[in-house]
Nucleic acid binder design. Sequence first.
RNA 1: GCGAAAGUGGCGGAAUUGGCAGACGCACCAGACUUAGGAUCUGGCGGGUAAAACCGUGGGGGUUCGAGUCCCCCCUUUCGCACCA
Length: 857
Amino acid sequence: MAIGDKTANAVTGGSGTGVPRPNDERYDAQRVEMKWFERFQQDASLYAAERDSQKKKYYVLEMLPYPSGALHMGHVRNYSIGDALARYMWMNGYNVLHPMGWDSFGLPAENAAISNNTPPREWTLGNIANMKAQMKRLGFAYDWAREVTTCLPEYYRWNQWFFLKLYEQGLVYRKKSKVNWCPKCATVLANEQVLGNGCCWRHEDTLVEQRELEQWFVRTTKYTEELLNDLDKLKDWPEKVRTMQRNWIGRSEGTLVDFKLDGKAGPAGSSISVFTTRVDTIYGATSVQLAPEHPLVADFTHYNQVLGEEVEKLISEQRKAKEAGDIGEIEKHGVNTHRFAINPFSGEKVPIWVANYILMDYGTGAIMSVPAHDERDYEFAKKYKLEIRLVILPMSGDPEETMTEPQLPFVGHDGMTINSGPFSGLSCDDAIRKMSAYAEEKGFGKATVTYRLKDWGISRQRYWGTPIPMLYCEKDGIVAVPEKDLPVILPEKVDITLTGGSPLGRVPEFVNATCPKCGGPARRETDTMDTFVDSSWYFYRYTDAHNDRAPFDGKIAQYWFPIDQYIGGVEHAILHLIYSRFWTKFMRDLGMIKNDEPVERLFTQGMVIKDGAKMSKSLGNIVSPDEMVARYGADAARLYSLFAAPPDRDLDWQDTGIEGIQRFLGRVYRFFVRNAGRDTGTPAPSEMSPEARAIQRKLHQTIKRVSDDFQGRWHFNTCISAIMELVNVLYAAEDAIAKKVVPGPFLPEVQRNLVLLMAPFAPYLAHELWEMMGEKASLLRAPWPKYDAALAKEEETEIPVQVNGKLRSRVLVPADAEEGFVLERALADEKIKAAMAGKQVVKKIYVAGKMVNLVVR
RNA sequence: GCGAAAGUGGCGGAAUUGGCAGACGCACCAGACUUAGGAUCUGGCGGGUAAAACCGUGGGGGUUCGAGUCCCCCCUUUCGCACCA
């Protein structure tokens, strides 16, 4: 295109002169983006990670989506961040792995099957095709040759393979227990999939029920300690996520102590085991409290109907509070069983109570109650007039103040035991150690650690998931499917309903199998795996996506792992991120990989909201990416999602905001149309005009700002502002440019750098401008511009001058001016003189290059 | 209740280390160009005033020559945890 010819007579405009500039070179984003879209399609290797590369590797990953049907703005934001980073790393010479895939098993496909009578596979693959097209149109630079689709046998056969490995290692087992059941999902859920308020993670208004079922469990607890301790290694994870995982693992150090039942309270020799973190207070225990569902309670109520009814009441109160999600605020109720237990330390008989605030699923479901040193026990004791006995005296740092009467309850650790028999006079920590050891020695207790993290229940009574490769033979019992028979293929013709158990159970050709051991008839397991199995290791598959002999090659994975940067929403802080940490440790111990952790750096981006609320169909505040791309273009949608807020914060979508971005892109384009290809003669580096210097200075300042942010805090909103400022400076200098005050090829060099700076954020426009400038080399691999501190430096600085801390004037001084010179200028300033009239300067403060403050009296 | 993050113009947000509060963008106002403008360009834009003074970063204290930033108390919002024994 002969840009020069077309605009030669148009470039007469001037800022502020009112001389018109042409606006017929309006940026047609659709045309330009479609042109490049087609070119990008033709070169499949464009975004491919290199094999056997000598370059330094960089693995940038965004959490893979569930193919629900269409991308939403949260996806666009997530992928725009990752894509900018991937492109930046390419430009910095790294061998970049930037893959994408589909977390494509799961319940929505079954729901769709029920409501529109579409087979889950068809529905899912259709959605994938659509969303993949959206991603391509948005210009995300993915290595599609490595695409992973978890619902295909090529992938899920390795889930089955891993299941067999877990089984061999004793890390998956079958157990009958109370499990979480979501009535809407019609399946069991893992503990991690139940929200804090007792609702299902996918149905936030549906309470999870408890059902007694036999299920497959993965022994995640084998790695509890390591999962906890290694959190300290994850220095580049958000502190928030690490805290959440720490809380979830819920380590608590304490002591188990057996309280023998007093003669008539129960069978001889039986006892109540309590868990306490404060065994040092045990001489102050004035009762034992049982959870209403504690097995011993049933013995007590067996011949006591009145007690039985009261316990029933406690059970229902507790259940109600749990369902309402406010077990923390339950009004404490209890009932005295009129039975007694014996404190093994003091030999004292203490009453046994049943209380509604004691939870069966934590510790042992029984506690010793020490009213003087525990808030809850204190409250309970006051209410039921139980004895409150002080056994710890507070000790402050000051010995004089030691042994003061404490305000009850005193729950601090900084105290000394009293009234504690042979253990009196010890510090709390000392007492805990000695008393635990004593209990162990005497055989009625021991130091122990409890955790909140439990094993991962992975059986799902659903169709659209990985079949569990297990068989039940009448003769041989549970038998694993031999590795050579994998994959166990998920049948396609299945009658899906949300009632009546696993849909696979209604497919005889699936269920009926042959026992590999005895050759007799066997029944296949009809439950499928939790989809979180799929996402626990998918990112390893990207490194070797077409391996049909193993999930991946260990050597290749070793090159790419750990993931350098993982980006996604904070909603996976526990679920996906704890399972995949477990999976990595399991694979490491299998000898498949060397790394202990899958992810080096984690970034959790904020949500996209509109009108102050999360986008949702019911609120009608959904912004469709397709519509944004059609109206403003992919660059604008991407750029705006980065510009509107820092990426870690929530983003409040504003329709007028993206229009501003569209204007900016047009502004850049027009500048290039008017000025590209202009070669105004010889450069004059030493005698550069002030206008040219201003441009050059701004350019280098901008390079610094953008580069720093990629290395540091990722505030792309300010990066983009900086680029806008640079463009504003170019516009302001357009008169000078037209008058050739700005020497060429200086200007093309500036423009070239501007394109490079924009390339990670707005790839379509950047490619167009790159081509317009006559560049032939690939923009994707063009070297990132270098910042030159000397060129970025201001020659003159405006120094604010304060009098008594109030801004009174400003003085313009050379950037390298000495303190004396600046102060002299400041004192000579008319406004400053006026402000100081009749007063004495007591103190002169000069902060180099920043500020003068004159203190006067 | 405990913990974390946040609170700045009409709006989204800047101010990275205690040093010019409000960058950049939106909205709005004015001007230019124009047959036209929902295009483009230029300028204005926290409150207040004729202009100044003065006031201004959730509220109240404090440290400092100087505080959006540091300290103390309080309020609000969001998130996480929660009779975890």
